[in-house]
């Protein structure tokens, strides 16, 4: 209950700040870039628009996830704002969950704004039927950004804000590279390396699994079980990192 109160005021605070203008700007930028990309292509302008748009959603989502994540708790410690909250009958768990949930609301709202601009760009240009798989791509991008958010929070609990941002970006890059690296001939020829990559694949989030853009671009259908399993994988990873963050925050000295 306390966590919800904290989440509510975290959301209100961010909503009243000028950060929301950023997502409007990013949304407009995604729209313009998709349009510009379309102008430089022949034959499949709607596919290019979608490719650029969905790609930018993933990138901006990750960027926002890092930005919000490193600010959730570490800035509160730095500014001493959390002392007023934790001096109330509020457990550390409620505080941490409230902050993450509140910031997740903000992230979801931002992603919805940016996605709306992308879809607007696509809808105005599309020549074929609207593929419902696009929604799944957006949902998965949202989950991806939520994972990055909690990863950034986790790093921010053990290091400074700059290094947290750097480490989170590294995790994002690794999350996209590991799956691809398994397909390399070199890795196939070295089974030991394959084992190491497999272990790393378990530890790091597999963002390739959440990226369904290719299926939309090439009109490949996906069954609902596969889609649901992907969402469950993403959410499971989000919860696991959240719990790890909760554990670290519980033990942290709030100097």
């Amino acid at each position: 209950m306390k966590a919800l109160t904290i989440a509510k005021y975290t959301f209100i605070e961010v909503l009243k700040s000028r950060i929301m203008y950023l997502s409007l700007f990013l949304g407009a930028l995604v729209f313009v870039l998709s349009f510009v990309a379309r102008e430089f292509t022949y034959g499949v302008p709607d596919r290019v628009t979608l490719d650029v748009g969905l790609g930018l959603i993933s990138l901006t989502g990750a960027g926002l996830g890092v930005f919000f994540g490193i600010n959730i708790v570490s800035k509160e410690i730095e500014n001493r704002t959390l002392y007023m909250v934790l001096s109330r009958p509020v457990g550390r768990k409620s505080y941490f969950l409230g902050r993450v949930v509140g910031m997740s609301y903000v992230l979801i709202l931002n992603m919805m704004i940016i996605s709306a601009f992308t879809l607007l760009g696509y809808v105005t240009l599309k020549s074929n039927a609207f593929d419902s798989l696009i929604y799944w791509v957006i949902i998965n991008s949202l989950i991806e950004s939520l994972i990055i958010l909690v990863v950034a929070v986790l790093f921010s609990l053990v290091t400074n804000m700059t290094m947290s941002a750097v480490y989170s970006i590294i995790v994002y890059v690794i999350g996209y590279s590991l799956g691809e690296s398994m397909k390399l001939q070199y890795v196939e020829n070295h089974p030991g390396l394959g084992v190491i990559i497999n272990v790393a694949n378990t530890v790091f989030p597999n963002f390739n699994r959440l990226n369904l853009k290719e299926y939309v671009l090439y009109n490949s259908g996906l069954d609902s079980i596969y889609l649901s399993m992907n969402v469950l994988y993403g959410l499971g990873y989000f919860v696991a990192i959240l719990l790890l963050g909760l554990f670290v925050f519980n033990k942290k000295e709030l100097v």
Binding site: E13, R80, T81, Y83, M84, S87, R88, P89, V90
Partner: peptide, 16 residues
């Protein structure tokens, strides 16, 4: 904590 009122040094509260 319900029985305590606390004011930290150099308070910075939620600015927005």
């Amino acid at each position: 904590n319900r029985s305590i009122g606390y004011l930290p040094e150099h308070p910075y509260f939620y600015p927005d």
